[in-house]
Amino acid sequence: MPIQNKYNSDMDDLGEACKDYKLHLTILFCIIISEYIGVIALDIAGVNIVLMPLLYSLVLAIAFYIVKPFTWINKTQSDESSAIMMLLVGPLLVKLAIASGQNLTIIFDVGLAILLEQLGNFGTIFIGLPIALLLGFKREAIGMTSSICREPQMAVVMDRYGFTSPETRGFFTVFLIGTVLGTPFISIMASVLAYVIPLHPYAYGMACGIGSASMNAAAVASLSAIYPQLSVQLEAFSGMANLIAMVTGMYVYIFAAVPLTEKLYDILEPIFAKFVKEEEINIEEEL
């Protein structure tokens, strides 16, 4: 089966994107402002919320798109940026991988935990699926909640359900929202959870490696802001967990996550159907 991955398909815009200096200068402006502001730690009722520069750069960039005077940022630049993003994930992954490589000895000590921790990725099924059903999603819910919806699972869901199926639609809904909003969300969530549910920082460090480079980086940075003396270990553990999640992701997804989600769907759907009024869910045309 030919497997399309996002890396190959979206790169047609790159030639033009290279030369679009106005776009790059705008981005550079967003970065300088964001990095200049730096990390802000808010103390709200004893819970330390860490705000990262990535959050400001996202908001600034969206503002540039929306606010009309900046006419040089429009749909073309939007397409170019999608293509560029796919490429920029690479150096981020290398940075994480180097953190793992240089600390391989301390990773061996906790190897068992990192392997077992992968099972925790099924947590999305037990928390996500009921919520999706409660909100009135049907078969879409299977695509949405059977995984974190990143690149390793993308080919599988299209291959298994077909490109126009509700499952694939659901998958891409979460993929799209996760790409943009997932990263700022996890950076704030990681800092809040560290206070609300005080598990060991190492455990949270491993949990950061969920198979998405940007989410991994954002979550680890939040944790490192709280536990600066552990930042080396946290980066190393998360990088290794992330690598394992990516390598095994596709197989775990085919053989375990999808069957488990379908089983749970068959059990839960009739129960929720009684409570949730029949709604026409139409998210077809926007994807």
């Binding site: 967003c30 990535l54 960039a61 798109y65 749909k75 943009v180």
Partner: peptide, 17 residues
Amino acid sequence: LISLTTVLLAYAGVAMG
């Protein structure tokens, strides 16, 4: 590490537009 994400998310913001 996180500085790379700052750049990535700036492009993501424009892409989201």
